[in-house]
Design a protein around this nucleic acid. Structure first.
Length: 465
RNA sequence: GCUUCCUUAGCUCAGUCGGUUAGAGCAUCUGACUGUUAAUCAGGGGGUCCUAGGUUCAAGUCCUAGAGGGAGCGCCA
């Protein structure tokens, strides 16, 4: 008989009809007359109840049906006599696909910490929490593709392996086929990469932005969505060595247009979650973060604050005058630290903030310089709890200005001639931003640690699964 | 990388001022129960107290070093 997925079985109205479901046993309980099996197949956070009449099935037959075992169940779909569900399956035929020794199966019915589950990342998708998180993760990916597709963007694939060493801040993972125990060096003691796979030093990308700009200079509106790698020794609940990033790049827009897109896009994603992940969000709201759904609604119902950096500094200095203590100073020209961002977002405004027009020296070389000569047109979106969720900017489109900035910063651009060609041939005003996919998921799921919103987290000293 | 906290049963944790045989809940096993909802009730089994040194008559508890993990910060998305 053909398998019905549980999300459909629970909605079925074909009472009295035979049905076949497959899944993993969450629990079995009962008495000497009847046994109840809670079965989950991942299609929904909800389980379907299988009822085994012990006059038809012996305890011996049901013995392998333990928490974690995988079974197929055939029976009649009937209205439930119990209170917890509307339909259930009266078991007529049982197939055991895979047993799970209850003495050794690590997933308990309750009381599992996130830290412990990280040590069994190969099994944690079978828990309610991670099932919900990963279904939401999929939905957010679909929301992102749908948003951009509907708004006329093209999905542009930028390379994961790159030979340019100035993509942006960030240590890179080197990619090589060389024998690391016997490296060929030149006369100056430098490693000779001429016989390496690419004939030059190569690394995993830290950003697709520079190549994304090339796409925008031809297709008008593009976005990238792929993995990104940072070899930094960051030990925080907000950093991964391997994470996914979304980077739209749009020609012929200015700073205000960019902020409109950032805000519209992120609200679209949050709204998508509320519209499409109701059951999972309700679960997370109940067990992980009691204020989750309310917070999601508050974000889509409010206008983000648009705050120039200089005004932000004024607010922070005013707070200091009124007695607020910060660990770090906040003078004009300093990069804001987490405590400053959190004060603005969580205490002063109480809503997301798009901070703009940063001092040029604390931002990347490619950002468009304002007429004051001191600030650049960055537009970072700061969220409560998680800090910077989007880093965006208008790009410097003028060849001479961009080149002067590169010289001033002494950035090695010898391998970047192709990037400068965008400004050399048919340059256009353009802007874009980068959104950390897992940081969006932190916000949407209410999870506390970024390692718990990606199936197999990669962090310093951790790449087991 | 810096600061700080944690590591006791399969899991979550308690363990007082250093003092007899290290406890609880859940899980598991056995039994009971006529429909359960993280089922309930009764009983049983289960310990390298992270590792290595040290102090002490005596160490889960104090000291030193190491390992692993969390949090805060830095860097960033």
């Amino acid at each position: 008989m053909k398998r019905t997925v549980i999300i459909d079985a629970l909605k079925s109205t074909a009472l009295g009809e035979p049905i076949h479901v497959c899944g993993w046993v969450r629990s079995r309980r009962g008495n000497k007359n009847v046994s109840f099996i809670a079965l989950n197949d991942g299609s929904t956070i909800k389980n379907i109840q299988i009822v085994a009449d012990l006059s038809k099935f012996s305890e011996e037959q049901l013995k392998p049906v333990t928490t974690g075992a995988c079974i197929g169940a055939t029976g009649l779909l009937v209205a439930s006599q119990g209170a917890g569900q509307s339909v259930e399956i009266q078991l007529t035929e049982l197939e055991v696909f895979g047993t799970a020794d209850p003495e050794k199966y690590p997933l308990q019915k309750k009381g599992l910490s996130m830290e412990y589950l990280r040590t069994i990342a190969h099994l944690r998708p079978r828990t309610n929490t991670f099932g919900a998180v990963f279904r939401i993760r999929h939905n957010m990916a679909m929301a992102i593709h749908t948003y951009f597709h509907e708004h006329g963007y093209f999905y542009f694939h930028t390379p994961l392996i790159t030979a340019s060493d100035c993509e942006g801040a960030g240590q890179m993972f080197q990619v090589t086929t060389k024998n690391l125990y016997n490296l060929k060096k030149d006369d100056n003691g430098q490693i000779d990469y001429s016989d390496d796979f690419f004939g030059r030093q190569a690394a995993l990308t830290v950003s697709g932005q520079l190549e994304g700009e090339l796409g925008a200079m031809a297709l008008g509106k593009i976005y990238t969505f792929g993995p990104t790698f940072r070899a930094e020794n960051s030990n925080t609940p907000r950093h991964l060595a391997e994470f996914w990033m979304i980077e739209p790049e749009v020609a012929f827009i200015d700073k205000d247009d960019l902020m409109d897109i950032e805000e519209d896009f992120i609200k679209y994603c949050v709204r998508w979650a509320l519209d499409n992940c109701k059951d999972d969000l309700e679960f997370l709201n109940q067990y992980v973060d009691k204020g989750l759904i309310e917070r999601l609604h508050s974000v889509i119902d409010t206008d983000f604050v648009r705050l120039p950096y200089t005004e932000g500094i004024n607010i922070l200095q005013e707070a200091v005058k009124n007695g607020h203590k910060f660990e770090f100073p906040c003078n004009w020209g300093d990069d804001l630290s987490s405590e400053h961002e959190r004060y603005l977002v969580e205490q002063h405004f109480g809503k997301p903030v798009i901070m703009t027009d940063y001092p040029r020296d604390i931002k990347a070389f490619y950002m468009k310089i304002n007429e004051d000569g001191k600030t650049v047109q960055g537009t970072d979106v700061l969220f409560p709890q998680i800090g910077e969720i989007i880093g965006g900017s208008v790009r410097e489109a003028d060849f001479d200005k961009l080149n002067a900035e590169i010289d001033r910063r002494q950035i090695p651009m010898k391998d970047m001639w192709w990037y400068l060609d965008t400004r050399r041939f048919g340059s256009a005003p353009h802007a874009g931003f980068g959104l950390g996919f897992e940081r969006l998921l932190l916000f949407v799921t209410g999870m506390q640690n970024i390692r718990d919103v990606i199936p197999f987290p990669r962090t310093p000293k951790n790449a087991e699964f």
